[in-house]
Amino acid sequence: MAHIDYYLATISPWCYLAGNRLEEIAQRHGASVTYKPLDVLQLFDRTGGVRPANRHPSRMEYRGYELPRWASHLQMPINLKPAFWPVNMAPSSYAIISAQETGGDVGPLVQGFLRACWAEERDISDDQVIRDILGAAGFDPALADSGLFVGAETYGRNLEQAVEAGVFGVPFYIVRESGQRFWGQDRLDFLDRHLAGL
């Protein structure tokens, strides 16, 4: 059975636009997924990327074209200027890490945080919002308050593992068995083909 390491950031519009396609692909091929939320801004700093605030205006202008194109193509609502962005990624990431430790289905939780940021104008660094999203995804809302130390440790370790594995942006998918890497929600079809042996 294949295993996919999914490196993500809970404030990334590109992770949001991935929707539930990774989970559908994994289910189709009997693959498992480990969700690895990380601080994407630190990842940029460590791997030669540029934080959005420091990018050339032409790059940001193109981003403003591309995001709504993809959102329209995928039939997903998106707010290009969310009320709460950027926000501290750590609290929502800790919640994902804690939820994953319980063995539940983390995909809907991840999508819940991303949708809250990019389509619902909610502050995913707010404790009550985090509890609400945990509950809506079938997890104990109290996970927002527990496992903070382990969450912080794992969150930092995810960044180190990402750098070591050659990750430089999100969403980023690595198939452990083959070492094949796929960067971007627009590469999910290639991940699907790879798992199918094509």
Rank of each mutant, 00 (worst) to 15 (best):
G30V: 02
L159C: 08
G166S: 04
R122N: 03
A152V: 06
I11F: 03
Y62C: 05
L17P: 12
T102S: 08
C117S: 12
A2G: 09
V50F: 11
D189S: 08
A136V: 07
L198N: 00
G64F: 13
V106S: 02
F190H: 00
A90T: 03
T102G: 08
Q111P: 12
E160C: 13
R131W: 03
A18E: 06
A144S: 05
L198V: 02
E164F: 10
G49I: 05
Q180E: 11
A162K: 10
A142W: 03
E177V: 00
Q27N: 15
G138C: 11
L195W: 02
Q128I: 00
P68D: 05
V106E: 01
A142Y: 03
I78M: 12
F113L: 07
L109K: 04
V110F: 04
R63S: 15
N88H: 06
P86Q: 10
G104L: 12
E61A: 15
R28T: 08
A71S: 09
C117E: 07
V129I: 06
D186L: 10
P77D: 09
A71V: 05
A2M: 10
F168E: 14
T47F: 08
Q128C: 02
Y173R: 08
P91Q: 07
I78G: 11
R176W: 00
F190L: 03
Q161D: 15
R21V: 02
R55E: 03
F172T: 08
R28W: 06
S98T: 06
A83G: 12
V40H: 05
L159M: 08
N88K: 06
S146Y: 10
I133H: 05
M60R: 14
F44T: 06
T102D: 07
K81C: 14
L191K: 04
L17I: 13
H56Q: 12
H29G: 10
E66W: 09
G156F: 07
Y7T: 00
F149N: 14
M1K: 13
G30S: 10
H3Y: 11
R63P: 13
Y173K: 09
G179H: 00
D132W: 03
A83C: 09
G147I: 04
S125Q: 05
F149H: 13
S146I: 09
C117I: 11
R115Y: 06
R46V: 05
P13D: 05
V106A: 02
D192L: 00
G112I: 00
V150R: 13
V167C: 08
D140K: 01
D186P: 11
Y94D: 01
